[in-house]
Amino acid sequence: MNFRKPRPEEPEINLIPFIDVLLVVLIFLMLSTTYSRFTALDVTLPVAGTQPLPQRPQEIIVAVAHDGRYAINQRPVEGRSVEVLAAELRTAAQGLNQPMVIISADATAAHQSVVNVLDAARRSGLSRLTFATQAGAQH
């Protein structure tokens, strides 16, 4: 007979079932995950194929630079706010009967700069607007 007290065995953590469960969870996550790609829109911009219009006195040409600066009839506008731009458009439109506002924006100009011109024209009561385009190759 053995009268000694049995020594308790030190508990061991069996890692094999734990690894099996983790692998199953990993496979499940890999199969159920949806991968979303950011796709860029492939946009082809229109090109005008008409003859250039002759200079007409009833036009106000608003140039928008790539960095957001404005020029009205080749005169730089001090400031970039809609209010300043609207005041300058009102001044340029004085004495003209329903002038046409031609927006000539740089290709790399921010959209907000062009929207500011549209908003300033609306505030100035100028409703005839158009955009200048670059002449493209004829097909």
Results as ranks from 00 to 15, higher is better:
26 L>D: 00
97 N>A: 12
131 F>T: 08
124 S>M: 01
24 V>R: 00
130 T>N: 04
64 V>F: 02
9 E>R: 15
55 Q>L: 15
33 T>M: 11
39 T>S: 07
48 A>R: 14
111 H>N: 13
102 I>T: 08
76 P>N: 02
106 D>R: 02
16 I>V: 13
17 P>V: 00
18 F>D: 00
128 R>P: 03
65 A>Y: 06
18 F>I: 04
25 V>G: 01
33 T>W: 07
14 N>E: 15
124 S>E: 02
104 S>P: 03
100 M>D: 15
87 A>Q: 11
72 I>A: 03
24 V>G: 00
111 H>W: 07
96 L>H: 10
67 D>E: 12
34 T>V: 15
115 V>G: 06
42 D>I: 08
28 F>S: 01
98 Q>T: 09
59 E>C: 12
31 L>H: 06
78 E>K: 05
37 R>Y: 13
44 T>C: 10
8 P>F: 05
65 A>I: 05
114 V>A: 11
57 P>I: 14
29 L>C: 12
75 R>N: 08
72 I>W: 03
101 V>F: 09
117 V>Q: 04
72 I>T: 02
29 L>E: 08
86 A>C: 03
99 P>D: 05
76 P>F: 03
8 P>I: 11
57 P>Q: 15
131 F>V: 08
44 T>F: 05
94 Q>L: 07
11 P>F: 10
42 D>A: 12
120 A>G: 01
117 V>C: 05
95 G>S: 03
63 A>Y: 12
127 S>G: 09
55 Q>Y: 08
119 D>K: 13
112 Q>C: 04
10 E>Y: 09
39 T>L: 14
90 R>S: 13
91 T>A: 13
75 R>D: 10
65 A>H: 10
71 A>S: 11
28 F>V: 00
121 A>T: 05
82 V>E: 04
30 M>I: 07
112 Q>M: 08
101 V>S: 10
15 L>M: 11
51 Q>H: 14
60 I>G: 08
12 E>F: 09
103 I>S: 05
18 F>S: 01
128 R>V: 07
82 V>Q: 02
116 N>K: 05
9 E>G: 11
16 I>Q: 12
100 M>Q: 13
30 M>S: 13
15 L>Q: 06
127 S>W: 03
33 T>C: 10
20 D>T: 09
45 L>N: 08
116 N>W: 01
17 P>R: 00
74 Q>Y: 08
93 A>Q: 07
77 V>H: 00
51 Q>T: 14
81 S>M: 00
107 A>K: 10
30 M>V: 06
79 G>H: 00
30 M>T: 06
130 T>S: 08
96 L>A: 10
98 Q>K: 13
84 V>N: 03
120 A>M: 04
79 G>P: 01
88 E>P: 01
22 L>G: 01
102 I>G: 02
26 L>A: 08
6 P>W: 15
63 A>W: 09
